[in-house]
Amino acid sequence: MTQRAIPLPTDESGHHVVPVRLYLMIFGALMVLTAVTVWAATVNLGPLNVVVALLIAGLKATLVILYFMHVRYSKPQVWIFVGAGFLWLAIMITLTISDYLSRGW
């Protein structure tokens, strides 16, 4: 799984050193997505407004986790820990929301 990481120069301790240019590109993408989400919030999309807002937030969070937090270049055990964290979060949210949404039936 470590082979998936794109080859980059490493420091003395064997860590990948992400080029500054990549950080700047991620920052730019986060700024653009922020502008898009503010704009999208002013358009009446009905129930889709929530979906769009959460999708954009999720995309921004993914960029931060993968690049700023270096998970993209981390070992499989970090991927498992991060994945497990969001899995339990998803279980909590899905079960609770499905309960509240279905109470009227």
């Binding site: 989400t37 503010v38 919030a41 002013t42 358009v43 009446n44 999309l45 407004n49 929530v50 807002a53 959460l54 954009i56 937030a57 921004k60 969070a61 931060v64 986790i65 700023f68 937090m69």
Partner: peptide
């Protein structure tokens, strides 16, 4: 970065929903 991510969700959920 984690604290940043929390805000990335707080901003649309608190400030943006219902602006349409």
């Amino acid at each position: 970065h984690f604290v940043d991510i929390v805000w990335i969700f707080l901003f649309p959920l608190l400030y943006l929903l219902g602006r349409d």
